[in-house]
Write a protein that binds this DNA or RNA. Structure first.
Lengths: 331, 331
DNA sequence: ATGAAAGCGCTAACAT
DNA sequence: ATGTTAGCGCTTTCAT
């Protein structure tokens, strides 16, 4: 029994006699033998590894995506390299190049690079982009534009007329989409959209815009993501502005946290786990017909909780609640 | 200029003429050439990859650890495979074996396997264990025993006498440590420790014990982690029991979330990022002298926030607050 | 159905 | 300081 038979037993079992096969398997079992995938990759060109590059592992938006992608990859006997760019476009590029040789493809989540750079990199290694749409590249996006529209319609329906948008970081496709959709949705007589940003997509980013929001006189805010929304609520709280009594806040993402804060956050739910799975599937399907540059657009939905309220029950906007209309008794 | 010179330029630059070296580097730059690390690993035996196995990526305890480990690994030009066991010991074993050949070592975070299995696996691939102490194996642990003691002393200092412990999952070393320390700390005249569990280390796990906690008559609870503590607060809330007025709750971990819930959670802060870094350093130092099985024990500290209060200001324990002593006026 | 041999991209002796 | 050679563990023709 010789080495190539062993190889066939693992990579093309049907080519080997049933009996020999089981003999090989028995030996392997006993010796704890497993084919070395790196060596195999050297000749087959397939590493069975996937790179997953995210902007910030600790941002609660990503872990569900990473978890789902990892599970899906493993279902197809692939493993996942995870890397964190710290929201830095330079690191991002370097990371793709560094991983290129040891993976079959890279999942680029919420990239901050330029389109042209991404296109260039996609010539060096198969790329699937998540949360961004680039002509000619396979992508998985979540329909945040629709989500932003729903959020704005919700706020308008509640009577709000002056609405603020706390935009996301520079280079974020998602932020641009939200901005575009928000402008469209708010457009109308007597309505106004105030845009602040760019902001860091974090709690601190939200804290930092509280001041501008207060001054803007907006009675409602759509934030780039839940983390910012939560920071913003904190910031407004310390300024004596109550949510939702004085101002309504809507987030985006529906991270686990948003069900647990007080008030519970009204938000646009994005299907992050589904996105992770879809991205992996897309990458693994790359080989089958590589010219098809698919685009998967996942639906979002508005989850109404406690951080939004009708304008009528509110004070006169983001100014501290010392106006006549706010003569409430403590309850 | 020949192939081995190119190789040397990258792996032993000092052995090649300065001029030739820069010529090689220039060419490489122009062609976008990078040494294939898988091929290199085949001969050197070093993959420059590290496996990181966690119980649940989506559990907010892990992302800061993963992020720190990834950053530290990259600082040493290593990459990280991340895998998720879903709290399943079987998956855990399979994962270690599957990764063994393509990494220089594996970081096993909060493993649920038996000690003997872990010892066996450590003979197949260098292992560093996080959040668990196994004689003879390099480990990074956080001193949760000390943390649990601090938490209990805090509660006792507040006048609590009947204290509950909401234990963690079966197989968790951390849970055992906490239990041991809690029993020691609570021991004393007129004091009693009520233990419930094992429980899932999640919000749902906390929700699920709310009932037992209520019936236990405890006036304070130490939970296995913040997630459980938060779930427990929710569960108690729906039963009309207020935290901290009716019952005090302490969590463990100090995840980001615990600063953002209402009430803000009193908790034991565990240095997860430091643990991630330390574990990577330990693994990379493995080669230097492999017999040294170090143990790093990181300090924890108590962070007092709003979920704990003196017994005197509380109702008569976990029973609904309809006792005479709770005749408070709304404020 | 199995064996023999070449070669994936690289490094590490060993020459020169 | 550079070239030559063998071989890491595997897969894949090509023979048999």
């Amino acid at each position: 029994m010789h080495i190539s038979t062993v190889s066939r037993t693992f990579s093309a079992p049907h080519l080997v006699n049933v009996e020999t096969r089981s003999r090989v398997l028995a030996c392997a079992e006993q010796l704890g033998y497993r084919p070395n995938r790196a060596a195999r990759a050297l000749i087959t060109g397939r590493t069975c590894n996937i790179g997953l590059i995210v902007a910030d592992i600790a941002n609660p938006f990503f872990p569900p995506l990473i978890k789902a992608a990892e599970a899906q990859a493993r279902r197809h006997d692939n493993h996942i390299f995870v890397a964190d760019t710290n929201e830095d476009a330079i690191v991002e590029e370097e990371l793709v190049r560094a991983l290129a040789k040891q993976v079959d493809g890279v999942l680029l989540c919420s990239p901050r690079m330029s389109n042209s750079l991404i296109e260039q990199l996609s010539r060096e290694v198969p790329l699937v982009v998540v949360n961004r749409q680039i002509t000619g590249l396979p992508a998985v996006v979540m329909d945040v534009a629709q989500g932003a529209r729903l959020a704005m319609e919700h706020l308008i329906g509640l009577g709000h007329r002056r609405i603020a948008l706390a935009a996301g970081p520079r280079g974020s496709w998602t932020s641009k989409e939200i901005r575009r959709a928000a402008m469209l949705a708010v457009r109308g007589p007597g309505r106004e959209l105030v845009i602040t940003g760019p902001n860091a997509p974090t709690e601190n980013g939200g804290l930092a815009v509280a001041d501008q929001i207060q001054k803007s006189g907006a009675t409602a805010v759509l934030a780039y993501n839940d983390l910012m929304a939560i920071g913003l609520i904190e910031g407004l709280h310390t300024r004596g502005i109550r949510v939702p009594q004085d101002i309504s806040i809507v987030g985006i993402d529906d991270i686990t946290l948003s069900r647990l804060t007080r008030p519970k956050l009204t938000t646009v739910a994005t299907p992050t786990a589904a996105a992770g799975r879809a991205a992996v599937d897309m990458l693994l399907a790359y080989g089958d017909d590589r010219r098809t540059t698919a685009l998967i657009n996942l639906q979002t939905e508005l989850v109404i909780r406690d951080s939004t309220a009708p304008l009528s029950s509110q004070g006169s906007g983001a100014a501290p609640a010392v106006t006549p209309s706010t003569t409430e008794t403590p309850s």
